[in-house]
Nucleic acid binder design. Structure first.
Lengths: 136, 136
DNA sequence: CTATGTGCAAATCCTTTGCATCAAC
DNA sequence: GTTGATGCAAAGGATTTGCACATAG
């Protein structure tokens, strides 16, 4: 196991993560620079990787655009608005897989240890905008 | 709507896709080159994008490694083995989201139009190898 | 003092794109 | 002949890495 020392930069990154919602590495970089003008993007990436390897944060991968990071490490799922691109948390207690054969997992290719679910759609704000446009 | 002409390369890509399982663009490129030694990787990517935009194939994004492509366009989900890296189809009829508040969607951030689920774990082959190693 | 962290820049990986030419229609 | 497709090479975005120096323990 690797030993980890304290670093001011890493602390700043953790704090920023706690107060922002699913930021990208670059968004974090821009914010950390306010406190550490000479911080490098490499340092941000390295720390995000360290933190996600320790399980302190979660790395989220989306089909479009760069990875995002989440200080919520509880298993939870995400909703991406195709219209505005924002990412929301889904407050889902659990997922039930309804297996095709009804045998409840006998047909699984292996032992499932983790799950990532992304739902795509239109967020409530964009839905409201749409209906306004139609009304106008 | 964009007009699409026939192309031998695209046909070859479709055939290869039909007979392989979740290949990456590069894996397809290597195989297409057997038929078209001068084909370029750019052509492979362009065709994969055309096909996925037409809905003839599906593009799959994973947190590790390059995108993969799937000729199965029915909504279905995937299992990734963390040990060997292989990707399997999950034969799931449907997903039930068990909402935290029990209000069945009232708390959703928007209208869900599509879902991508990736399960991570250890595939049956790797599980078998593990228990063999322990036994030895 | 030793090991880890940092800043910087270069490198890497995956994917897209500009452009001249070629093929489909 | 017009438009879309190709091959090639260069560009692009995101992320990682090598290295010399700084800092925590």
């Amino acid at each position: 196991m690797r030993r980890i020392k304290f670093s001011r930069q890493r602390e700043a990154i953790k704090e920023l993560l706690a107060e922002s919602s699913h930021p990208t590495a670059d968004e974090i970089y821009i914010k950390v620079r306010e406190q550490f003008p000479n911080v490098s993007l490499g340092t941000v990436y390295r720390n995000l990787n360290v933190l996600s390897e320790c399980g302190e944060i979660q790395k989220l991968t989306f089909p479009e655009g760069p990875d995002r990071f989440d200080c919520n490490v509880m298993p939870h799922y995400h909703f991406v608005c195709r219209s505005c691109g924002r990412v929301f948390d889904l407050h889902v207690r659990g997922l039930k897989l309804d297996m095709e054969d009804g045998t409840d997992g006998a047909e699984l290719p292996g032992r499932i240890e983790a799950q990532a679910l992304i739902c795509y759609g239109t967020c409530n704000d964009c839905l409201a905008d749409e209906s306004q446009d139609i009304g106008a």
